[in-house]
Write a protein that binds this DNA or RNA. Structure first.
Lengths: 173, 173
DNA sequence: GAGCATACCATCTGTATTGGACTATTGCGT
DNA sequence: ACGCAATAGTCCAATACAGATGGTATGCTC
């Protein structure tokens, strides 16, 4: 399989993107990186990271080096083609909108008691907001600008939802 | 199959919820209802609506009545068990957080040029915001309170993102 | 009232995604 | 040396999914 005939999904670019950030990585490393960052707004099941890396390697976008001994870890790095694919994706703006997938909102839509959900959601969003704020105040090492901007978005996002659910929580329903 | 051993996913509740709202509905009706409402933040591929209704009927949560002639439409309505399942789900608050799945944010995270994405995203979010505002000012017929609250969330959500991307769009990058 | 465009409605195919269980390796404490 | 926790990878059956396809009804045109 060559680079031309793979379908590249968002997951593909997540993999390429993180391999790029890290220079090289095993699927397990990727799992950790995902969990620590975009896992906050975009879930990637771990099994995918194994199949997707393999797929991208087969397509010539990743270089695969396998330990012969013990764990037989596979270490991936970008090939020039992979680097090109990532750059092209990055450069292409998208007008596509987000999907939200918010269970709380769904229940609200279908007539659940606003107050009850609001209480639970409020707590969760407050916790997430605190987490983001801690990240921002953060460990000192300066964050690359992409992740930092994404964090900004996360902060504002959480602030709105804290406000939204707080309003519902104290409304007399 | 009985009610005990089906796994009910969010899609299941979406189906149950809309069948409840409409009293009874064909999968095709559901498709239209989804598109007009939660489709804005939660996509459900139409084929799912056919398989999911069938699955729920098999599980005894929906009642299925099939036209014998012509189109052989299937008309679904809630069984008591279905009603109970929906009510239980609605009553159970969730602390689970949303997933975002925003391509724009993803590209931003991975180092795309903020300005370029911001421009495209800004336009899209502004359009969506306008759509929601029109809905709110809306057709006159008052909206049920669940959907109305969800719309509130959507409005605020879009407003933040319009602001967020607008800021990036005019920043000197 | 025959022909045809258009909307309406349903299903099927093949593939991809998923969560979760399962297995194996390694490092650490005692 | 042993057991335990953390690390790392694989597998599988159930779903989800996109998109093509194939029918049926309606109504319009001539």
């Amino acid at each position: 399989m060559t680079a031309e005939d793979v379908r590249l999904t968002p997951t593909s670019y997540i993999v390429l993107g993180f391999v790029d950030l890290a220079d090289n990585a095993t699927p397990y490393d990727l799992k950790a990186m995902v969990a620590a960052s975009i896992g906050n707004f975009w879930s990637v099941p771990h099994a995918q990271l194994y199949t997707e890396t393999a797929r991208l390697a087969a397509a010539g976008l990743l270089d695969e080096e396998r330990e012969e001994a013990g764990r037989r870890r596979k270490l991936y790095s970008l090939t020039p083609a992979g680097r090109r694919a990532l750059a092209a994706w990055r450069a292409e703006p998208t007008g596509e909108l987000m999907e939200l997938r918010d269970l709380g909102l769904l229940k609200l839509f279908f007539g659940a008691d606003p107050k009850a959900i609001a209480t639970a959601q409020l707590e969760a969003h407050r916790a997430k907001l605190a987490e983001y704020e801690a990240l921002r105040a953060g460990a000192g090492e300066p964050m690359p600008s992409g992740p930092s901007l994404a964090l900004d978005a996360g902060l504002e996002h959480e602030r709105v939802y804290v406000e939204f659910w707080a309003r519902l929580a104290k409304r007399d329903s």
